[in-house]
Write a protein that binds this DNA or RNA. Structure first.
Length: 573
RNA sequence: CGGGAUGUAGCGUAGUCCGGUAGCGCGCCUCGUUCGGGACGAGGAGGUCGUGGGUUCAAAUCCCGCCAUCCCGACCA
């Protein structure tokens, strides 16, 4: 590609709206341009990269027997209503105003609707279907460039199996394909156990790239044996246990104490573990006849409630109580709430395992400005349940006690999970087994964010001058620079090299611009970040030499003009 | 959806407090000199100051509404 004929609007200055490195560099290098919040135009350079990523995905999906589809982005409300997701997805789904259609945020329903009339016998199974499609999600707050957009490209695959063992196999195939894909894309990645969330399903794994730009928080063990999304992460920690002093509980005055920290300060305590933190959650009623359910959650004062774990225990719909609700249910405002003396007696009380049967606890009195000490959960709180409800913290032991846990931020680039029969049942996608019995098809769902891979790669591979591409997703293999295209010898040599290199089926970006000064070309080259720069300049050419620069290291190699092709090929292998 | 910030030429911004000629850098056009790390000189084009209303002799500037974008949070397969 001749740069004189390539639309690539590079920018010297950082765009004011971009914060994370990948976003800044994608804009500066002319890969993308924002149209509106969360929506980006893909300019030629960006589109080349995204297509290369897609191609890798395609090859790996085909390698495990995948069939590529392209499904519509528009789909009828009716189809989503059948699985209940028209309601469940809520505002995250774009809805068409002048037709009963939505813009699909994912494609379980559509794929299942194709499976239904076609996959009717166990002989038709298993199947692995996928597509690479634009998805639409009305994200409340798009951010970080293409890392969270309202419109983005996703590879979504779905497996259809007759047996649960078959699903295990399909899942394993995808897992392996994902590892190949991210490796070929040059990502430093890891996988974590995850929560399948509102999608429904059981086993679930996310593929993560460690990065401060990420929105996910993960727990990884030092020895690499454990990695998990913080939402479901567990660690080993001793219960705080009993002191058995058998003191009666008593109320005491705590004016202006609104938080655990203030409570600890007022009592001159460093260890906050026996200050039981109380939070009230609401499980909203599902219909008008039923009442909202309230849940009081207790964790140690130095812990936080893990809302995902609570969701898995109670209901996906739970939310923290509003201030009015807290007052109404407990009799106090946040900061003075505890397990004893709740105004509403029907509150479900659940506590974290660490508090199991603990005594000598201090918690709110359900009366503003008062707390209660010497609470014995075993003695004083009837019907209390214990579950794992805390957020794992940095530095804690892994559950097997063999390693320590590190908490870090990460970008989710892929997610695979076992859906089971939820969609097949909802849509009536049934097949006949060997015994002639009707069963729902067992499904798996597997997604990859295409643009996210590029962004995650840039987060991991850039320096102050720009992007550092390498391997298969580099938009070009070689950036050929004609330092001064006005010089006849330089121009002719560069033109010739362009021809020779192109013949080797390499992708070459050729800076043949005549009116651009050398410094400008060099800066552009470093910004765009093609792995190898071949620099044709007057001075070296006088000695029949040509310079090769390695973008990542900055290393410069001078070779004779006849050895360029050989050297480039050597460097690229 | 809550909190915060911003909106002035393609990009980055000053001016806003204290009302009175819209300014600068980059980029762009012309000419000349340059030509190995985002050159220099001279000349030039480009702006309904986000938008609607109000106050005023006069509004980028003050007041009210709306819209948009970004950040934090909530939310999010």
């Amino acid at each position: 590609m001749r740069l004189s004929n390539f639309f690539i609007p590079t920018q010297k200055e950082d765009p004011t709206d971009a914060v994370v490195a990948s976003h800044i560099l994608m804009i500066r290098s002319g890969m993308i341009k924002q149209l509106t919040s969360g929506v980006y135009s893909y300019l030629p350079l960006g589109y080349i990269v995204f297509r290369k990523i897609e191609q890798i995905i395609r090859e790996e999906m085909n390698a495990i027997g995948g069939n590529e589809f392209l499904l519509p982005a528009l789909s009828p409300n009716e189809l989503w209503h059948e699985t209940g997701r028209l309601e469940d997805y809520g505002d995250t789904m774009f809805r068409i105003k002048n037709r009963e259609l939505v813009l699909a945020p994912t494609h379980e329903e559509v794929f299942t609707s194709i499976a239904k009339p076609n996959l009717v016998s166990y002989k038709d199974l298993p199947k692995m279907w996928y597509q690479i499609q634009t998805k639409f999600r009305n994200e409340a707050r798009p951010r970080s460039g293409v890392l969270r957009g309202r419109q983005f490209t996703m590879k979504d695959a779905y497996s259809f199996d007759a047996t649960w063992e078959g699903l295990d196999e399909s899942y394993k195939d995808q897992d392996k394909a994902y590892k190949n894909i991210f490796t070929r894309c040059g990502l430093d990645f890891f996988s974590v156990t995850a929560c399948s969330g509102a999608m429904g399903g059981s086993e679930s794994e996310e593929f993560m790239v460690e990065s401060n730009a990420g929105e996910d928080i993960v727990a990884i063990s030092d020895n690499g044996s454990y990695s998990s999304n913080i939402e479901v992460a567990v660690s080993f920690k001793d219960k705080i246990g009993r002191k058995n002093s058998n003191l009666n509980y008593e109320e005491f005055h705590t004016p202006n104490v609104k938080s655990i920290d203030e409570l600890a300060d007022s009592l001159n305590l460093n260890d906050k573990s026996r200050l039981a933190k109380s939070r009230v959650f609401v499980d909203p009623s599902k219909d008008e006849n039923a009442k909202d359910e309230y849940i009081l959650v207790l964790v140690c004062g130095d812990d936080e409630v893990n809302e995902t774990k609570l969701q898995n225990l109670v209901s996906l719909a739970i939310r923290p109580g509003h201030p009015e609700e807290l007052l109404q249910v407990t009799g106090a405002d946040a900061g003075s709430i505890g397990p004893i003396g709740l105004k509403n007696k029907n509150v479900r009380i659940v506590a974290d395992h660490l508090l199991e049967d603990a005594d000598e606890l201090i918690s709110g009195a359900n009366k503003n400005d008062y707390h209660i000490k010497n609470i014995d959960l075993k003695r004083d709180v009837a019907n209390i349940e214990y579950h794992d409800l805390r957020v794992v913290k940095d530095g804690e032991l892994t559950f097997d006690k063999k390693s320590k846990i590190k908490i870090t931020k990460a970008i989710e680039v892929g997610h695979i999970f076992k859906l089971g029969t939820k969609y097949a049942e909802a849509l009536g996608a049934l097949f006949l087994d060997k015994d002639g019995k009707e069963n729902p098809i067992i499904m798996g769902s597997y997604g990859i964010g295409v643009e996210r891979i590029a962004a995650a790669y840039i987060e991991q591979n850039h320096d102050k001058n720009g992007i550092i591409w390498s391997g298969e997703i580099a938009p070009f293999n070689v950036h050929l620079i004609s330092v001064n295209a006005n010089d006849e010898n330089v121009r002719e040599t560069s033109d010739k090299l362009y021809e020779l290199l192109s013949n080797k089926s390499l992708d070459i970006l050729y800076d043949d611009r005549v009116d651009v000064r050398p410094g400008f070309k060099f800066m552009d080259a470093d910004l765009i970040g093609v792995p190898i720069q071949v620099i044709v300049g007057e001075k070296n050419l006088k000695d029949n030499n040509i310079e090769i620069k390695i973008r990542r290291t900055g290393e410069r190699i001078i070779v004779g003009r006849e050895q360029v092709i050989e050297k480039v090929n050597e460097l690229l292998t």
